[in-house]
């Protein structure tokens, strides 16, 4: 983790302690908070975007990657979970209208 690194000297800190890189929290992943891992079943997924809209992180992304289900249905985009940031809260699992997201325990 970056907190364990050597701290910068006061000379290298910008005036006023301003943070020059917006959104640099993304350098600190929160995926290790997770106990249960949500996994999207791409065959069942209807691409309704509810999980994308409610994810508080955001850890669910819309990716322009076509997908063909086993029953032959074509989708223009795919929803993918970024496990570097997903905290495993399970909101998407509960809210999915077709129960296409499985919630399985993390095993190492």
């Amino acid at each position: 983790m970056s907190f364990e690194k050597k701290l910068p000297s006061w000379k290298s800190i910008p005036i006023g302690g301003a943070i020059l890189k917006p959104g640099n929290f993304a350098e600190r992943p929160t995926g290790d908070w997770r106990v249960f891992r949500p996994i999207i079943n791409q065959d069942k997924c209807l691409r309704c975007l509810i999980c994308w809209a409610i994810c508080p992180e955001p850890a669910i992304y819309i990716i322009d990657k076509p997908y063909r289900t086993s029953s032959g249905r074509e989708w223009k985009f795919t929803l993918e979970i970024d496990y570097n940031y997903c905290k495993g809260c399970g909101l998407c699992v509960e809210e999915c209208p077709v129960k296409a997201i499985d919630f399985v325990e993390e095993v190492k």
Binding site: F25, A26, P29, T30, P56, E57, P58, D82, Y85, K87
Partner: peptide
């Protein structure tokens, strides 16, 4: 809002602010 913030897992403030 970038991911990796320190809100609790399942905190809906993240959803509201996003």
């Amino acid at each position: 809002l970038s991911p990796g913030h320190g809100l609790c897992a399942g905190c809906l403030v993240g959803t509201i602010v996003r």
